[in-house]
């Protein structure tokens, strides 16, 4: 059986370069009969200054894709390029430095350091690197996430929404190449969730930040510029300027009729 190649060629808008690229990455776990293929030859570009959502049913490989893109996991084969750096064969030290300098994270479970104040948490990646943010940029980020009066509070003294805003501030402060957000609204009620999403949207529009967000919430996806759909470890579709209605339809279609072949709208170029 010939390898099925599913890829989304970068539909380059004028002046847009890819901030992160996956080139034919495959990620398998286990061996022999217990072999699980989480990603199957995926190629995708995430454009600079764009807000992209990665969607798909459970087990579709969307988290694995994000982990590989964010230098938290290494693909079994294929290449990941972050900015102008190819991740192949980098050692732990180089990967650590890369995450510190080029990647920002927002996790579903906030993942703040409980012993540090909100401000210290926001500054953490930069202070680990031994750098300080420009004061004006720091003020901009803090006012954007709306934490001005909470800076001295510890995570336990903050609501879930506030904690996630701290996490978002942390991801943005070092102006990383890409911010990866893993179900950032998963633990929040809808109004707190909407607040985070508005903030992420704003940071793309106003600061030109590149954001890749893994989500299964069509409402969240509607805040993005582009949605990439995964199923069974392959990219099966993508949608520009999504609305929650369209995303919902696509999602139910994906979970009811898992495509045996790549879905028609996706062009399948020759390798």
């Amino acid at each position: 059986m010939p390898a099925t190649t599913a890829s989304v060629p970068s539909e380059v808008r004028p002046g847009r370069r890819p901030a992160a690229r996956a080139v034919g990455i495959t990620r398998t776990y286990g061996a022999g009969s217990a072999l699980v293929t989480a990603l199957d030859n995926v190629s995708v570009d995430f454009l600079a200054g764009e807000f992209t959502a990665v969607m798909g049913p459970s087990g579709s490989g969307k988290s694995t894709l994000m982990h590989c893109m964010a230098a938290l996991d290494a693909p079994t084969s294929g290449h990941v390029v972050l900015g102008d750096v190819t991740l192949d064969g980098l050692d732990d030290k180089a990967l650590t430095k890369l995450r510190r300098d080029k990647v920002g994270f927002v996790f579903q479970a906030y993942n703040l350091v409980p012993t540090l104040t909100a401000q210290e948490n926001v500054e953490l990646p930069m202070s680990i690197a031994g750098r300080r943010a420009e004061p004006s940029w720091f003020d901009t980020v803090i006012s954007a996430v709306g934490l001005g009066d909470r800076l001295k509070h510890r995570p336990t003294e903050l609501s879930g929404g506030q904690q996630q805003r701290v996490a978002a501030g942390r991801a943005l402060l070092s102006r990383p190449e890409v911010v990866f957000a893993d179900e950032p609204t998963g633990n929040l009620d809808s109004s707190a969730g909407a607040e985070i999403l508005r903030f992420l949207r704003r940071s793309v529009d106003e600061f030109g930040q590149t954001i890749v967000m893994v989500t299964h919430d069509p409402v969240a996806a509607a805040y993005t510029d582009r949605v990439v759909f995964l199923a069974d470890g392959r990219i099966v579709d993508e949608m520009r300027d999504p609305t929650s209605q369209r995303v919902l339809e696509k999602m139910s279609q994906l979970s009811e009729h898992p495509p045996a072949q790549p879905a028609p709208p996706v062009p399948t170029p020759e390798d």
Partner: peptide, 11 residues
């Protein structure tokens, strides 16, 4: 988390 946001092993 600390490792993810860029803390090295040595640190």
């Amino acid at each position: 988390l600390l490792r993810a946001v860029g803390m090295g092993r040595r640190q």
